[in-house]
Design a protein around this nucleic acid. Structure first.
Lengths: 79, 79, 79, 79
DNA sequence: ATTGATCACACCTTGC
DNA sequence: GCAAGGTGTGATCAAT
């Protein structure tokens, strides 16, 4: 029989999180590199950041509108 | 001569913040009341919240776009 | 005769809420300014936040005790 | 001959960043899930966060000391 | 009433 | 060193 102690569970949880944090850090560094490369090619990183932010906002707004439509549809029983 | 001690300054700061926090709380309660009233008149507050959120997002997006335009203008010296 | 349509009511509700949200935002900014000013005068804003929090908690506690006293008083009065 | 315009470069940069941001978000969500699972198994997530933070600090410290040792070793080797 | 989801606030890290 | 963005936490709200 295989007993899994709290201790073992906890260790597993912590190491999994730590690995994921590593991954996350790695991705962050990749992003940084792309910005650096862009800068090296003469692009304005500040503007790029804004463009990306704007695109993200537009996407969120689109989703929100969709949800709102669903909400109204549900209200009038069209769903 | 009028000495203003740090002690006095600190008291002033704290009481000003506390008053402002009171104001803020008061406004929050007013908002809550409007929602209650709306509910009482048969409106779907959830939908209203979403509409308001959406309008806010649209406004923010507009501002962000404007800023981006300014940024580009500055870049090419048109400002 | 003056008909007030749901549509009109809804518009009114939304604009009232949006105005109140504006007010709230404005007050929040005022608070932020006070903190900035405090910082500019060499105060530790983090500490100030703690003080304000503590005072708030103390005030709530005071009120609760008062209510408790009232409750007991009423109970005794009922005997 | 293959001309790569600034326009194309910019598009490439933006889409690469957006993909990486997606990856990052995905990893963040995975982390959140592990915490949720931990919570579901009765662990105190706040405590786990502290542990992870401490381990991270300890690791950094270890690295710094190692570097220091390397520095000293190099210094001695140079005499 | 309770619980889950949503939202605003405070903190902290990151980029400039 | 500061300003800004992301993250965690606490409050708030709706649904059951």
């Amino acid at each position: 029989m295989t007993e899994i102690t709290s201790q073992e569970q906890l260790k597993s949880i912590i190491s999994r999180i730590e690995e994921l944090e590593e991954d996350k850090k790695s991705v962050s560094e990749d992003i940084k590199e792309v910005y650096l490369e862009a800068k090296g090619n003469g692009f304005d990183t500040k503007a790029i950041r804004r463009v990306i932010k704007l695109r993200k906002m537009a996407e969120q707004e689109r989703k929100e509108q969709e949800e709102l439509v669903n909400l109204y549809s549900a209200t009038i029983g069209m769903e």
